[in-house]
Design a protein around this nucleic acid. Structure first.
Lengths: 344, 344
DNA sequence: CCAGCCTCGGAGAGCGCTCTCCCACGTTGT
DNA sequence: ACAACGTGGGAGAGCGCTCTCCGAGGCTGG
């Protein structure tokens, strides 16, 4: 196998393979791509020629004519937070895992992009418009992200994680967050908790809102007309701070629902600090079922969000939008489940 | 701005811009790429034409002739662990952040790849050989990874995070792990700890070995001839288990050095469970200075590894290898620092 | 005043692939 | 027997860009 350098000059081309096999370029191409019928013997001939030349098709050349790159952009839409923060969030890791897992079965590769500034957003757009990727997967951490709208305007295939704050003709994958809130409330009530509070995510996020209203509505149905809430921003620190505030205002609380596990972890710390035992004195429920839920002692009872599956579905949706550009925007909603552990 | 679809048929091409500006394709290309001098007036003319046509250069066409893609592969070399595990590790998040941070200043984009099976490794190789990326950044989680060797053989530009287990003519970025071990030992001794143990990473990893020998050598210099060790695999669970074992065999221990923060976090849990107070009864030192160090209560004293900077340097090295293919393999070693917090 | 040079725009040849035609050769039907 | 059709291979025209080469024009120096 006389391999040439990657795609350096001198690397074998289709032409070389064709010559070695004694057929035309077109035939080699047909064998490689499996388009049309090619005689068995000739196919064998071509395969041997490919092996002996060490031929590898050139992606750029192929893209140029097919107008497909076989890559998509995986865009993380951070806001003000320092860069590390976004990627370090276990939530992002799960999304990446789900996306990569699905894409690899289709021979597609994700390009990691960060869209935290106007400039970065413009770059994402340019990246797609210049045909460097066939579409985009967006994971947004804040509400007023202009990127989804920009993609819709440019008619670029894209799929969001979570429903956009503004209605937009764009596909997305989401969790029935409202149901998640209900699950948490029902569980807390079934435990006989009387003075329940909640730590919410940023309230401009539909996600946070839905979890909160689902939770409050269910609590109301159970006779708890009002549930005090404190907002965090999905980080552990913010959860700890919110818990401190709630503890100060409602020292008698015996149940807490945090809108994600990281904040629950922070709340747990604050509760310990104040000498509250979990779950004996205070029952604590998180949201996500991330690795943080298992890292806590006691391990967190939590509302599971099947992030990996959702991410995979997101990728699947995007690929179908790429294949059929005229496909209508659709949404896929996943159901949350309660994962009972020790904390509640 | 009469924008055309991304790189769909009908999108404006260089030709269109040239016609609109009344110049040749070559001139437009020169203006865009800033090669050679072009008359100011003509430049202005061209820029206007670009704006009015909404032109975006086609990446594939450019790659085809320049043999550069402006993307690199960011390869995570997992072993047997479930997929999610790898991406969820905060360590990976920091690497990603560092890489993305540097690359964006150079207009280069990372493609995320997972090389956890022979098949996946072959795909990484094919990806590079077909010119889909200009080089690769490898983050390996286990010792006997064949991928670096494969890349060297194929003469593809690549840079590793951490020294390879087998000597290999390949550039890498690493931490002075030995020094890190020394730092931890010195600190524990300065605290007057008498019965010190350590939780190591997988011992086939040079990283783990170096941390251990650095630690043991320094302890020996301080008169502690033998330091008991238990091996983990860098996960929280394994750290917890290792701590259990050590506690069983050395109930009188008063100092622990864990080879990463996640394992230290696990150890902390085990210590609590056994009623040991940290830092009063047992001093605990972690390694990495990851988000886990701050998530613990007490917060972890740890040996800081500037992962983001190291990742950025890795990217920088790779880009220089891509620019100068004949450049010799070099290594850049970063110095660890002790970050004193509450746990020791 | 002209050879020599330098500057800067244009022409055109590819880069490596796909894909539409076209054509040669069976095979079938009447 | 011949027209009609089906099968499978080859020719060749691009895809959109870069880059080398060429040449026109303006400048300098002897």
């Amino acid at each position: 196998m006389s391999r040439g350098l990657p795609s350096a000059p001198g690397a074998p081309t289709l032409e070389d393979v064709a010559r070695a096999a004694g057929v035309s370029r077109a035939t080699v191409s047909r064998v490689i791509n499996g388009t049309r019928n090619v005689d068995q013997k000739i196919q064998e001939l071509v395969r041997q020629a490919i092996a002996s030349t060490g031929y590898v098709p050139n992606r750029a050349a192929r893209s140029l004519v097919t107008r497909r790159t076989g890559t998509i952009a995986l865009v993380v839409c951070g806001a003000g937070e320092p860069r590390g923060e976004v990627f370090t969030d276990p939530f992002f890791g799960r999304v990446a895992a789900g996306v990569v897992g699905l894409l690899r079965t289709r021979g597609v590769h994700p390009v990691l992009m960060l869209a935290d500034t106007d400039e970065a957003r413009a770059e994402v757009l340019a990246f797609l418009r210049q045909g460097s990727a066939d579409g985009a997967l967006l994971v947004s951490t804040h509400a007023k992200d202009p990127l989804p709208g920009m993609l819709v305007d440019a008619r670029l295939p894209a799929v969001l994680f979570a429903r956009p704050a503004e209605p937009l003709p764009i596909s997305y994958v989401d969790l029935a967050n409202h149901t998640g809130g209900v699950l948490a409330a029902d569980h807390l009530v079934s435990l006989g908790r009387q003075q329940v509070v909640t730590i919410t995510g940023p309230l401009d996020l539909p996600n946070s809102q839905d979890r909160l209203t689902g939770f409050r509505e269910a609590m109301a149905r159970h006779g708890h007309a009002y549930v005090p809430a404190a907002a965090g921003n999905f980080t552990q620190d913010s959860g700890e701070a919110a818990m401190e505030r709630l503890l100060a205002e409602h020292p008698g609380l015996d149940g807490v629902f945090a809108a994600n596990d990281l904040m629950a972890q922070g709340a747990l710390l604050a509760l310990h600090q104040h000498g509250r035992r979990v779950p004996e004195d205070v029952a604590l429920i998180g949201f996500d079922d991330s690795s943080a839920a298992l890292a806590c002692r006691p391990q967190l009872t939590t509302v599971r969000q099947p992030v990996e599956d959702m991410a995979a579905e997101m990728a699947r949706l995007l690929l179908s939008h790429i294949d059929e550009p005229d496909r209508r925007a659709t949404s896929v909603i996943f159901e949350p489940t309660l994962v009972p552990r020790r904390s509640a």
